[in-house]
Computed example of a mutant assay.
Amino acid sequence: MSHVKSIAIVDDDASVRIATESLVRSLGMKATTFPSAEEYLAALGTQPVDCLITDVQMDGIGGVELSQILRERGDTTPVIFITAFPDDRIRDRVMAAGAIGFLGKPFEGQALIDCIEIALTA
């Protein structure tokens, strides 16, 4: 029996979390949502995560910082960044650090699906 892929979604915007969760579930994958990077870090290790989708700018720990914390811990989970403020400097930084994707909100569902597929085959 094949493992159902598990996607973690970290975004402080509830509407984005709900919409992204619905999209992930429509692909037959498990989606777990977190309103903050801190809550994601607290839950880390309680269940497998095959891909992380995180907002770049959040109160407290932002997505870029979250990604750095995970890498420092040796966590190699593929990361897809989403942001309402697509900035080339941030895009260049996260892509250089190994991000799978960097999508500006609102993004096309297919663009996120493409990033998830890349992440799960990486």
Rank of each mutant, 00 (worst) to 15 (best):
I113A: 05
A37M: 02
V24C: 09
T76E: 13
V10N: 10
A111E: 13
T121D: 08
D87V: 14
F81V: 00
M1K: 02
T46M: 11
I69G: 09
L120A: 03
P86N: 12
E21R: 14
V49A: 09
A99P: 05
A31D: 01
I116G: 00
I116A: 02
D13Q: 15
E65F: 04
L70K: 06
C115G: 03
E38R: 14
T76L: 14
H3Y: 05
I61T: 13
T76N: 15
F81A: 04
A111K: 09
V56N: 02
K30P: 06
S15W: 03
A119L: 02
V24E: 04
E72H: 05
P35I: 13
R73A: 14
Q110K: 14
I9T: 02
D50K: 05
A111R: 15
G98Y: 03
A96Y: 02
L52V: 09
A8G: 00
A99F: 04
E65G: 10
A122L: 07
I61G: 00
G74N: 07
A43R: 13
G45E: 08
G63H: 12
A96M: 08
D13P: 00
P86E: 01
V64W: 12
A19T: 03
T83N: 07
Y40V: 11
P106G: 06
I69N: 08
D92V: 07
T77Y: 09
L103T: 03
Q57S: 12
S2M: 05
P35M: 15
G104T: 00
A84I: 03
D13N: 13
T83Q: 09
R73K: 13
G101M: 06
R71W: 01
A8H: 03
L112C: 03
F102W: 04
G63A: 08
A97C: 06
I100P: 09
A31H: 00
D50A: 10
L27I: 10
P86R: 15
L112G: 02
T46N: 03
D12I: 03
D88V: 13
E108C: 11
Q68S: 14
A96H: 00
G63E: 11
M58C: 12
V4L: 05
L27V: 14
I61C: 10
L112W: 02
D88C: 09
T33A: 11
D92F: 02
A99H: 05
M58Y: 07
S26C: 13
G98Q: 11
A84F: 00
